[in-house]
Design a protein around this nucleic acid. Structure first.
Lengths: 211, 211, 211, 211
DNA sequence: CATGAATGAGTATTCATTCAT
DNA sequence: AATGAATGAATACTCATTCAT
């Protein structure tokens, strides 16, 4: 019926996974919303788990790329690289808030897949953050701090607006999907980095490309 | 036959909801783990949703109390109150990390219950935070800032270690359930508050009761 | 709680059996409506089937008595006896329309209990009707007719208003619980008996006691 | 795999509903008797209630048609039409005694569905009966009588043999499914109509088509 | 590519009943 | 006499999945 069955399935799945959770969503719900036959999902993704894996892989592959794009600037300074990573991830997660929220939520479970994702993507992510932070500290750009605790705090600030987008919208009246949000919120995180991490120096944030 | 059927049901439920999610956990799983008959769950909690509501209510009632205990110190200064709220919530969430993780995750869905919780507990929570922050700004204790964005960041830092306790443990090797964690992490948050929020002044954090 | 638990249980049971059927009614529904503990029903009636049997027995014992009261008039003539039986049964079934409807409906099933009731009460009932009809025919009071078909028609007319009391009320706007109904309806049945069964003779229906 | 799953489900359902009642019959019983998977019932009829509705609709749609076929003869006289309706309904109900008994029994409950059926089919049925009876009275074919009471009696005579087919068979030894029954019983009802309703005149019942 | 039919295993829930108190 | 706790079995229903077409 539809032009692009596969695409419309993913679209419907992300929407429903996002609002009801993975376990709370049935393949028939997805098929109904996508306007396709349930058996079609098995055809494209083997089974429900395959559809989940498809979403995870797509998300984290590109997620890592965004980190690597910032990490590539490490030679220009740890601060530059770190701030670029931050803004890249913010933007990336803004692109598809529904998918982001769903992935981040699912990552809080204790499943086989979560363990696999953590042992690959998250370990790589930690590697990049660690490299940047340690280099900053070694070069006296950054003050000394516990690296894991810094990563924890950076990730806290990066993920919460998306994971709790409903709360953020309804209670705080902040709209994370608007372009203004990235600008404002990245400035807040920069401020936190400047205050907590960076040695005081006359530095402006102009170098961070914001595209 | 069992001494405390009701209690053991809740215990098993929290554990399983935590690891598998609410929808991913069957009433039979819970009953099996608790060593009771599945029908007993209906007897005590009416249905699965009732068991969920029981957990939510218990959690948020006490959650609010912790905030209110800090808020009561407002006359001694906004900073004192805010830091007390922070450490209280950290400790409270540490008490039962499993329950906390499960509740925080479930709050990222778009269910009827989530809407209800947000419109009561979260709105009250925002009220207290707002009062403290605005009072701090009015009295020149705090610098001027966007209140919603401040709340967003405070909640980010407070929740993430628990929501992502698995990641925090496996990837960052931080153990949120150890007493050391609260000490270390609350100091990090205080540092952030001092740097971002508080007007520079010779102030020590000794006033914050850490019990 | 209640003064008379047993009585209030039966009352509630009859009401619910009547509206929802026996299988469609749960012991908890009954207990709730009667304001007693479900275990109490087992105490009084052993089990759900016992409660049913109690209703059946009470109903049919008195049902038969009403027939026998009419049958006792056989020496005064078959017509007198038959009409007395008719009016007695009409009145009896009017007394507790709810119970009557429920019993009559349940008698249309193929259960063990139904077979037992039929092989005792209904066989006796048929015996009395047959005796009266055959005597009427022998004495030339009645025209010759098929006895079973006559019984079938008499029972049709006697039971339908109660079995279908809802239809009778809502669609035909006849109210079988009003005293007027017995008067009017028994006259209709007499008219049918006179026309179909009785040999033409100057006879009035005054002899039939209407108490 | 089966040739006619849907048909065999309905067949099994009618048999079991007839003997045990709707509430007393489980979907598993039906599936077992029909030799299909229980989930198949949900596939075809959505749920148990859907299966019930299917039976009701099928029954009453055709039931009304039989009435209308007789009503179409009204121009040939009220008596002709009425007797044709009677014989049509008798035959129709004989066709599937099991379904008829089950439907008639279920109509004695106070459910939502019963109310709906009554407010559509039964109201239409009453309309046709009323039209025929009033026309007969107006044209002096019939004596004056209470229309609702006449309808009540006609329906009594028409339904009871089927509703109580078990009793009729076991106690009275009348076999309503044999062709002889319709002939004999319709003659009895005609006799009743002639005696009670029709003005005395030399009329024979030969006009009523008995096919 | 796509689908309607079908299924076995699983879901939450309700049931009548039991029993210690 | 009466009840709260507890249970095993049964309930209707939903699930992801398979497969012939």
């Amino acid at each position: 019926m539809r032009k692009n069955s596969k695409e419309s399935i993913v679209e419907a799945a992300v929407f429903l996974f996002n609002t009801q959770g993975f376990s709370g969503t049935s393949i028939r719900d997805i098929a109904a919303k996508a306007g396709v036959n349930p058996a079609n999902i098995a055809y494209y993704f083997q089974n429900k788990k395959g559809l989940l894996e498809y979403c995870f892989t797509a998300y984290f592959e590109n997620y890592l790329k965004e980190i690597e794009k910032g990490y590539a600037l490490l030679d220009e300074g740890a601060e530059v690289a770190l701030k670029q990573i931050v803004v890249n991830l913010l933007k990336y997660q803004c692109q598809d808030i529904q998918l982001t929220r769903f992935i981040l939520r699912e990552m809080t479970l204790d499943s086989q897949m979560v363990r696999e994702v953590m042992s690959t993507y998250h370990v790589k992510e930690r590697y990049y953050f660690k490299k940047v932070l340690e280099r900053g500290m070694r070069k006296k750009e950054f003050r000394n701090h516990s690296v894991p605790y810094l990563i924890l705090q950076i990730k806290s600030l990066l993920n919460t607006p998306f994971l709790n987008s409903h709360y953020v919208h309804e209670v705080l009246h902040i709209l994370p999907h608007e372009t203004y949000f990235v600008e404002k919120y990245s400035r807040d995180i920069y401020q936190w980095l400047d205050a907590i991490l960076c040695e005081p120096k006359p530095y402006d944030n102009r170098r961070i490309v914001s595209v």
